[in-house]
């Protein structure tokens, strides 16, 4: 499905954090949202999924939801947001519990997503027994179990160490290759954005406006290949040029405010 935001603006009291955002997330693509700290990336993601009420503008879904979709707009959280008192399988089950699906289908879906995310052997484990990477795998499994129309990922890998992050990037690439789920992916990590996204949207510093949308003209599966390294480096430099000015300015603003 397509997710379309029109003239979205947001303010917390007197503080304007987003202004005039027009954005179209295309069917089946992964759109990365980047920008300097405090530019309102996460707020925008909250507005896109209906978890934050926009001060201005509107958001709409267009198209036909995928087969078996239980929760069209589904999040993956930076802090995983797992219920510590539920086992891995039961955490995944949460998203399936208040929908009209049979016991058997629920079980099948859980088994399928656990297998897909490599959690098959950990169905009965509790979150505290898992590493950070495994926990986020549960978060991802929980999200894809409901077959979302749009996956909204809020810095899903930023709480993980560098090696785990690489591993999970590879796994996400594989999952997307299979499921082709429309995804909005918020990150502050340019390499990650270039690695995973079809397009990268750059937000300005606060109040966040859409500065630029950049296509990554390399098929996702091939981006790890050394042949594309120079081009990715070029894109990285271009993005960094955009962000750096904004980030430096934002940093000074924060310092002044403090």
């Amino acid at each position: 499905m397509q997710l379309i935001a029109r003239a979205v603006g947001h303010r917390y009291g007197a503080l304007e954090v987003l202004a005039g955002i027009d954005i179209e997330v295309r069917e089946g693509e992964t759109l990365a949202l980047i920008g300097p700290s405090g530019c309102g990336k996460s707020t925008l993601l909250g507005i896109l999924g209906g978890m934050i009420e926009a001060s201005a503008g509107s958001v709409e879904l267009r198209g036909v939801p995928p087969a078996g979709c239980l929760n069209p707009l589904t999040y993956v959280f930076q802090d995983f947001a797992l219920l510590p008192w539920r086992s891995v399988a039961d955490n995944v089950a949460l998203g399936l519990e208040h929908h009209a699906i049979g016991r058997r289908e629920r079980k099948e879906r859980i088994e399928a997503v656990l297998a897909l995310t490599g959690l098959g052997d950990f169905a009965d484990a509790y979150p505290r027994q898992l590493s950070g990477g495994m926990r986020q795998r549960v978060g991802i499994a929980r999200a894809i179990a409901v077959r979302p129309a749009v996956l909204l990922m809020d810095e899903p890998l930023s709480a993980l160490d560098a090696q785990t992050r690489e591993l999970l990037q590879e796994e996400l690439t594989a999952i997307w290759a299979r499921e082709r789920t429309t995804t909005v992916y918020v990150t502050h990590n340019l390499t990650e954005a270039l690695h995973l996204a079809d397009r990268v949207a750059v937000l300005s510093r606060r109040p966040g406006r859409l500065k630029q949308i950049l296509e990554v003209p390399i098929p996702r599966e091939e981006r790890a290949s050394p042949a594309h390294a120079p081009m990715l480096a070029q894109l990285h430099a271009a993005l960094w040029d955009q962000i750096r000015v904004e980030a430096a300015a934002a940093d000074r603003e924060v310092a002044d405010a403090g």
């Binding site: 978890m51 947001a81 998203g95 929908h99």
Partner: peptide, 10 residues
């Protein structure tokens, strides 16, 4: 965040 998570899953 757990409550928000549950809300986001309907």
């Amino acid at each position: 965040n757990l409550i928000r998570m549950a809300q986001s899953f309907g």
